[in-house]
Every structure is written in structure tokens, then in C-alpha cells.
Amino acid sequence: MKRTTAVAPFRLAASTSVTGESWCFTGSGEPLGDRAEHWDPDMTLRLDRRVHVDVDAVLASTGIESADRLALAVVWKSDRTRLRGPGMSVPLTGRRGETEVSLSLDVPGHLAGGSLELRTVLICTGAGAEESPIVAARAGAVLWSERSSVALEGSAARFPITVLDFAGVPGLDDQAPWALEWSPQDLDQPVLGAIRLLVNSAAPTAVAAISGDDDPESLAIATMVRFDVARCLIHGALEEEGFVDGSRHFEVDSVGRMLRELIERYWPGVALDLLSRRQSETPHRFESELQAKTGLLAA
């Protein structure tokens, strides 16, 4: 069913009257991008951005008589916790013409997770002297807004993931939603250095799935990603003689150790050589077991 577009009951600010620069990490000044690398729930995410406001254009388009009734503010919303919270609010009292505003935002990690939406808003702070039915008068009335989002974590948190445009990467089909970057020869290497799930930024459903979105489609796609990653890794490992016959030792946090643990979790007590034969001799059984173990398309 097509949703009816909501129409504001008051005059809005012209869309070009406010422009925002990118969000940056406070301190380092590095741009935020679409993923907050190394985020964890014990940290506070500190961000800032500059916003340019053409105050005269805002007043002309909204019908508000003075910048004393305007403020720029920012709100965050986490899809993991479904909580929202405010950042800095800057009154535009006394400003005229072109003006620049610095906004900052602290998001406590323990309140957030998943995908974080950052909404910058220009609001009315209250009623003016002259009342008009089409001029915003309520405190908090949104005259202009802009949203951006950043992935704080995914369902596969701590699994190295990079979102990028496949069109610019040699060797990757730009129509593919994801690809696992690794080599079965790297079983001795640390997981965090030798494996990377590449997700095509041009495939928004895949990006939503690895960002931890909770809708049915994203959850289903996340199971497909999990199955595919497990399948690639386990197939590769079971074709390595030293991995299967137990002659190679793997350090904690290595790819080989992680895969031995993963296989033991999926097939407790089953010998690796038996599993390797099952993979080559009865692939239908092996594949169906792997689908079930990884929860492929599980409701």
C-alpha cells in the first residue's frame, strides 16, 4: 500500500537555506563515513559537524519574523535499542544573513548499537508575537531536517567487514552483493587480518542486513551471508590436508583455530577426515547440514 506523504501544517524552510558538512569524529576530525570502525558499547561516540544557515532565506520561507525563534539541533536514534536522544541545540538568536553553526553530539555506547541515525533539525523554539495559522508556533516544530546514518555494528559484530562500491574494485563483479576475501593458505594468520567480508555499497539490502537491521528481509539476508561465509571457509579448510589430518597447530585467534572451533560447534564430535569425506562423497548431505547449522532462512 502506498503511503501518503505527510504534509506539514506550517511553512517549511527552503531546502537550500540550510546545508550541512559531513559528520566528523571530534578531536581527530576524520570524516565519519558509513561505518564507525572500532565502535564498542563501552565508548561514547563523539561527533561534530558544521552547518551553514541562510537566516534571511529561512525567515522568508517560513514566515517566522526573527531568528530569535530558531535553533539548530541534532537527534540520534539507534535501531538496536530503538532509543533516541538529543545532541547539542544551538539557538540562532540575533543572527542574520549567512551564518555558520558548529553542532556536536555525544552518543553513549550503552544506549546505542546497530545502525545509528543522525538527524539534524532546524526547529522553531516557540510562538511569536504575530500568530498565523501557517507559520510554525510550537516549540520543536521541524522547519528543515536532514538524516544520515552510520553502522555501529552488524549481526556479525567483530567479524571484519568492509562496505565499499564493488564497481571500483578489480576482480569483483559490481552486481554481487558481497564477497569473502580470504585464502585457505592463510589458516595460520589472525582472523582479524586474513578474513574480510566485502559488502557492496550498491546493494542496500545487503548493507542493511550486515548492519543488524531487524526487519524480516534483512534477517533472512543475514542468514544467507552467514551461511555463505561459513560455507566458503569450511569448504576451503576441509580441502587443506594439514587442517584435516590434525598435523598443523593453530594459535588462538588464528583462522585455523577459529574454523576448527566453528566446525566442532556445528558437528560436535565428528572427526575432520570423516567430515572431509562427507563433503566430497555426499555433498548433498554436507550442504543440507551446513544450511541447518547456520540457520539459513530460519524464521
Binding site: A8, A71, R84, P86, I123, G140, V142
Partner: peptide, 8 residues
Amino acid sequence: PFLSLDVV
């Protein structure tokens, strides 16, 4: 859609 109670 038109009101942000989070910033008041």
C-alpha cells in the same frame, strides 16, 4: 513527522 520532542 513535524515535531521533534527530543530537542525541547
